[in-house]
Design a protein around this nucleic acid. Structure first.
Lengths: 153, 153
DNA sequence: CCTGAAATGGTTTGTAG
DNA sequence: CTACAAACCATTTCAGG
């Protein structure tokens, strides 16, 4: 799936991932090209899945979601059936913004956004009642120093 | 900064955060309203900082960024001067997609996207040469189970 | 605050180099 | 593959309920 991207493609991605609201003319000017080539490349990259649809990032505080936890999970169960249930549970829960399966001692890490510590506990209780886990450590974020969708291109 | 958002505002945010490429007509239809009120609310929420500018999410694999690490950092230094240097270093590094200051034993967590393990090591070496840290644990992601900007609204 | 329409400007398509 | 132009469609503004 690693489409061949030339320098112009990369410049376009750089412009779009910082602000997708720009007009084609603006982007063309920034990347040193013209409207049609930019449009053709954008179209191609969208079809190839190189970039997703434009999204707006909503400020969690504005919605009262003031607590962010990173959750480290160890489990003793590694059967496919258990894993399938666990993954389904994570995907179904909107509080879970990110979930990764890890290499090493810790099996999973989650990023969870909730209103407060109490809401986290409700999430936690609901999760462990759905699937058995061996050990859970929650790390509470005090300050979001950086949060960037932008990849180094 | 917690602006009062009514039900219609929330519906609009829900629609926009899943796909900001929709036309105002489509959104208006989905939320059961009309073009002008939707437009006025979008405008107001943008000005209030409730939502950021539209962004496209780029597929890391398409750029050859195939490794994702979560980095747990402990430090013994907690002076403001050290902290300022550390924060500046994190913000300056494009590999760092997220950085949080934590409560508890672990002081910081980072999410780092790089091409491979070797690129991570280069990042790591560069970071610890800039600022002194006590202990660093890197968790390598094997599989991105879920990654969603969408907040539960 | 909503409706509906008018004007502006950007996107998308098509033709030609 | 690029430049240019024409048609289309969305956004933005504005008058009226």
């Amino acid at each position: 799936m690693a489409a061949r991207l030339d320098d112009l493609d990369r410049k376009i991605l750089r412009a779009l991932q910082s602000d997708a609201g720009q007009s084609l003319d603006e982007i063309a000017r920034k990347v040193g090209s013209s409207k049609t080539p930019v449009w053709n490349r954008v179209r191609k990259m969208r079809e190839a899945g190189v970039m997703g649809p434009p999204q707006v990032v909503v400020d969690p505080d504005a919605l009262g979601l003031e607590a962010c936890f990173f959750v480290l999970i160890r489990t003793s169960e590694h059967e496919t059936e258990w894993q399938a249930r666990f993954l389904a549970a994570l995907k179904a829960r909107p509080e879970v913004q990110e979930a990764h399966r890890l290499a090493g001692e810790i099996d999973y890490i989650l990023k969870v956004r909730v209103a407060n510590a109490r809401a986290y506990d409700e999430f936690y209780q609901a999760l462990i009642s759905e699937v058995r886990v061996f050990n859970v450590t929650a790390l509470l974020s005090m300050e979001e120093i950086k949060s960037s969708l932008a990849l180094p291109i």
